[in-house]
Design a protein around this nucleic acid. Sequence first.
DNA 1: AACCAGGACACAA
DNA 2: TTGTGTCATGGT
Length: 284
Amino acid sequence: MRDYDLAATLNSGQAFRWRKVGAAWEGVVAGHWVSLCATEPGWVTATTLRPGDWGWLTDYLQLDVDLSAILQGFPDDRPLRDAVEACRGLRLLRQDPWECLASFVLSSTKQIVQIRRIVATLCERFGSPVAVPAGHAPEFAFPTAARLAGGSEEELRACKMGFRARYLWRVAQRVAAGELDLAGLGNRPLTPARAALMNLPGVGRKIADCVLLFSLGFAAAFPIDVWVIKALRALYFQGRRVSLPRLQAFATAHFGPYAGYAQQYLFHHMRLKAGRAKAAVAAA
DNA sequence: AACCAGGACACAA
DNA sequence: TTGTGTCATGGT
């Protein structure tokens, strides 16, 4: 697969279950344990216990997406060009909508490393075990909404998710009760799909856009978090303070039908630069 | 030891 | 419409 930066894609804050093991990345997708490795630049090899059936994985990794066509759809401005050049091969995954929704409900005002820990604990305590290679430590599927709804809010809180426990528990109840057809949202227009998500407790514009973009195929959705606010202000507004609604209006108008991809490049690039700056300070 | 983290929400003004 | 406090916990 050309033009696929596995590390950037799995480590850019869109999914929270990937662990780096040596040169490989291990995770659980659609209830299957899988190990991915970037053997050569641009190439990805996968090890699973289900040879011959790859649909669940190729769909997740979005291997059929023509990245160059998306990049050509971007506006031609300097900040975005810089971000694309710095993160060439960064992709968007196609995640399970429930896992994506639940994970991002847990994400609010949490660092990505910590979201990973909370999600890991949640899976260990509530997820069903999945088949792993002989001698491998046990791995668990992401717990279903019904499983979480069957437990208590306190059990969730014990996974160190703080005030998000009530949100997650109530969202799980609504989804388990069938009040919201998550997968079906992908067949609706962007605006009503977003409104349906924002109707859930603990889900505002930002988290709704993450679910739309990372799991439901809405490439135009543009999640704006603290990092993207910083990036947009610095790169497009001369550092001026701009309200969230105005930033959203600017983003959808300026970045076009693949705005969500542009968002991911700006987000990841901003975090890379911040990481390098921090490392430079530590070395000085 | 402060400050901040892939926010949402209720409630000012 | 825009601003502020609150929520729970841990990293830097």
